[in-house]
Design a protein around this nucleic acid. Sequence first.
DNA 1: AATGAATGAGGTTTCATTCAT
DNA 2: TATGAATGAAACCTCATTCAT
Lengths: 219, 219, 219, 219
Amino acid sequence: MGVAQKRKQSVAEQDQSVEAPVATVPRGRPAGDHQAKRAELLEAAASVIAAEGYAKATMRRVADHAGYTTGAVTYYFANKEDLVLALVVSRFDRYDAMIAAIRDTADLRELLARWFHLGQEAKFWPLMPDLLTSARSEPRIAELIAGRYAKFRADYAEVLAAAQASGVVRDDIPAHILSDQLSAMGDGWALLYPIEPERFTSARASALIEATLALISPR
Amino acid sequence: MGVAQKRKQSVAEQDQSVEAPVATVPRGRPAGDHQAKRAELLEAAASVIAAEGYAKATMRRVADHAGYTTGAVTYYFANKEDLVLALVVSRFDRYDAMIAAIRDTADLRELLARWFHLGQEAKFWPLMPDLLTSARSEPRIAELIAGRYAKFRADYAEVLAAAQASGVVRDDIPAHILSDQLSAMGDGWALLYPIEPERFTSARASALIEATLALISPR
Amino acid sequence: MGVAQKRKQSVAEQDQSVEAPVATVPRGRPAGDHQAKRAELLEAAASVIAAEGYAKATMRRVADHAGYTTGAVTYYFANKEDLVLALVVSRFDRYDAMIAAIRDTADLRELLARWFHLGQEAKFWPLMPDLLTSARSEPRIAELIAGRYAKFRADYAEVLAAAQASGVVRDDIPAHILSDQLSAMGDGWALLYPIEPERFTSARASALIEATLALISPR
Amino acid sequence: MGVAQKRKQSVAEQDQSVEAPVATVPRGRPAGDHQAKRAELLEAAASVIAAEGYAKATMRRVADHAGYTTGAVTYYFANKEDLVLALVVSRFDRYDAMIAAIRDTADLRELLARWFHLGQEAKFWPLMPDLLTSARSEPRIAELIAGRYAKFRADYAEVLAAAQASGVVRDDIPAHILSDQLSAMGDGWALLYPIEPERFTSARASALIEATLALISPR
DNA sequence: AATGAATGAGGTTTCATTCAT
DNA sequence: TATGAATGAAACCTCATTCAT
């Protein structure tokens, strides 16, 4: 999104310079890339939460991590809730992209592999459970998560239903229940990951993927 | 945490070892029932966390809920970490008891039913994920949980192995992996429970139990 | 109020020590005098506002002035609004007492003299307009002031009506209008006092009192 | 505040002295109308203070209200104090104009009517007390107000003296004292206006005007 | 002439913890 | 055993101000 935005702005500048080369020079400091800066701060927040947990993820630490002052963070996000809300959105967007990427093939092994990859490389595992837990005391976050998560499970169920139709997934359990079970399993692993990281070496991750595929394969 | 706590704890230990192993019946002055008071405060803490989340569970709120003042809580627990540590112990004790209760029969339906019951009636679902998440910033809590959880999974695996031996559970997946998968699934449900309580009506809970039994039943 | 409270508490202690001299010694630190401490902080707040204005009257400065830390202030007052609310109450209580003191005699010269005295010696002038202005951004303070002020004007009107009946105050203007005019005049003086203190020397205060009495004396 | 402001101000002065004494008609590039822009921002500031009180009147809100950004405000006013100073000047200019307009006739009913009108229609009532109170923590504002207010009272006294001379105002109270009393009364009403707006309906305003005229009419 | 990013000081509030009693 | 006063650190947030552009 950062990139698209940047391109759009430079197009706007071109328009101006073509039409009125002298007097219409854009006034003031160039707008910078607001969205890109927000994304940067979001990544900083994600890193801090992943590294130290939600409880230690203060505005100050996020700012420090991004190399700014607290004021800069509140300049881009009206308050902490806004920051977390945006972070939740950005993470679920990635989940949605993950599902979308395999929707056509309904390749569940690939989906699980991507999910394990996001979890570890993209720091989703030490992040999402903290985000879900933070929803306990923040109704708006809870509401957002509830909506996005329901959509995620529905998409997941759709993929599973397709897999059932093509005979690669057992069909004695409804797709929406399977989706529920599998996503819960994933959340459970993510929840324990920071406490027992040694359980999730890539060798063991492969074993878990295979065992999970075995669980849902047709009898 | 240092001196004061040490004194308090050794007194408690003395009481237990000298007077009575369980010591719940007030003898002489009822005032001396240190363990009972601790348990009372622990339940208050559990209720507060279950009701409002870990973030809102301050020493003051715990004290209020138990009908005491802040000072009383810090009298019985050297500090907040101690309180949470004790709470974690008390909850895993219940998990262990749950496993122990069905170890002989290896009745998995009963085990799942008990687990769903603990989760909802005994407020474990809105509690355990908060406790696990709190471990993110408290190494001693993380360590304690890691140990107790590993033991729990091992016990669970033992039960599953027995069930495999008697042919009621599929044996194409090792028991310790099944244990891993099932406990993760449970944690995942618990994690979402406060956000989407409507997903866990007792009717739907039954459906989930049956679907989970189907998942692990032999082919 | 502080005194009355203190007396009450010591009576309670006496009761206890008489009935059960040994075992019922009041536990814990003696309650201190919560109300007295609140009053002390209120006076500190009044002094700070009087000296530096509402804008500079931060919780920190109030605490410093009283010789405590910020935490102590928020221990006695849940938040700043609460502190200001209590301050408003305490000041209007004094206004009410002022009116009550001359209600029987309806001696307006005495009333004006008391009012000038409160204004200067008891720091009411540099205080009340700041309090009234602070109500602009705090609805609950505005509501409280509106109510108390209306009562004050009504009491004032009652005194004026009595004075009209006894022929010492002109009766061509209704008492409630006179009350309105006189209290507004007082507020106006108070508003300017911090800006032009030299206008309110005691000589000039006397002149203002006499001129005000002349204004309302019967024709 | 130092250099930048100095440069700006001297430019403004040059414009005035060289080109035209009043200089409101845009000549050549309309961009140069420094004074008009300042006036525009001043009105925005007045509106914000009138609507939400001085405490909420931040540079940002003033800018927003005028349709600019914060930077624009600090471009036209070296700092916030400067802005408020200019605002005070502009409001007292209107008071002076109000007095000047009735100086010849010494028509006090008209003066009071105009004052009530300014207070309500031109938002002076919710504005002036906030300005006066803000002077508490800003010596330069206090100084400015003290000077302008003294001049206002002197002009008012002059009008009252004329009225006394022509027999329409009582002369048992010196004109400068009457001026003091009447202006204080007005300030007092203004101070309460935001708290009790219902006391100042136009019907009641008329009653107050008549009662005030009665107060000062000859015996 | 004006923008908007960024700073940094300072405000209110929360809270675990200490401690005299 | 238990209270409740008090501390002090740290959190979130606001805002005037600066400055590159």
